[in-house]
């Protein structure tokens, strides 16, 4: 068919993507907390430099799934993982994996903005300093670039050495994203990044997320289905630890294949 208009991008078939377009390849991932099975045989290929959202009711395993990609769940006592997660052709659950290095490549942002109680500048260069970088110019450049990437540079360039806690909630959240970006990660995990923010700050963050995909693979967990529909290219629907449906967002929100997805996104089941 001819394209007469420049409208939404055509739907993408996830199975048709080449291996080099995949950022995270999850193979039969199951996770237990003690005796409770939190994730069951998850199989999904998350595309590179695209935004993928994970939706589902509370307790379905959304945040747990996100926590698998930087092995944050390892910190929870009784956590037991089966299966494999490949990032850059390496299974991150391999026993020789350097978890600290993994977490600098896979940044994470949480629901509540959590800047460190120090200056804006120190927040941004904290991770780099831990990596042993001391060169002032390198740190300055990294801080400036990260602030520009999150559209915060103009707002804070004159007060870089003020406490990060003096920023507004929306600004703090952008600062936290900038802090993750300063480490030049490949992947950004956002765990309900706007649920503690007002509607306008939410829109600013959403706008930022769509720009971030030029450089990073973004995964976002959200309770707000409309947010998933607005910002993401692909959407995964989880229910009781199982991946029910995972497809192009345009498809999932107009013609879902599974009855459970249909019921969830149309507000029939929560």
């Amino acid at each position: 068919m001819f394209d007469y208009f420049d409208l939404s991008r055509p739907e993408v078939d996830l199975d048709g993507l080449a291996d080099e377009d995949i950022a995270i390849d999850v193979r039969d991932l199951s996770l237990k907390f003690g005796s409770k099975l939190a994730l069951k045989d998850i199989r999904m290929r998350i595309p590179k430099r695209q935004i993928t959202s994970v939706i589902g009711p509370s307790g379905c395993g959304k945040s747990t799934l996100l926590g698998c990609f930087n092995r944050l769940n390892d910190l929870t006592p009784g956590c037991e993982v089966q299966g494999e997660v490949y990032i850059n052709e390496r299974n991150i659950y391999h026993r020789k994996e350097d978890v600290a290095a993994l977490r600098s490549r896979v940044g994470m942002v949480f629901q509540r903005p959590n800047p460190f109680p120090m200056s804006i500048y120190e927040n941004l260069v904290y991770g780099l300093k831990i990596q042993g970088i001391r060169d002032r110019r390198t740190l300055d450049n990294a801080a400036e670039q990260a602030l520009r990437d999150v559209a915060l540079w103009k707002e804070v360039r004159d007060r870089l050495f003020d406490s990060a806690l003096t920023l507004s909630g929306g600004q703090q959240q952008r600062l936290v994203i900038a802090r993750a970006i300063a480490l030049q990660p490949d992947i950004l995990l956002l765990d309900e990044p706007t649920s503690a923010l007002d509607p306008i700050s939410t829109l600013t963050i959403e706008e930022l997320i769509t720009q971030l995909k030029e450089k990073y693979t973004v995964l976002i967990v959200t309770h707000n289905m409309q947010q998933a529909a607005r910002v993401s290219d692909f959407t995964a629907f989880l229910h009781q630890g199982s991946l029910i449906e995972y497809s192009d967002t345009n498809r999932l929100f107009t013609r879902p294949k599974q009855q459970q997805t249909e019921e969830y996104i149309t507000g029939r089941y929560g």
């Binding site: 289905m225 529909a229 929100f253 107009t254 013609r255 879902p256 997805t261 249909e262 996104i265 149309t266």
Partner: peptide
């Protein structure tokens, strides 16, 4: 209401 899926259709 931002209808989705069958509601939207």
């Amino acid at each position: 209401r931002h209808p989705a899926a069958s509601d939207l259709r």
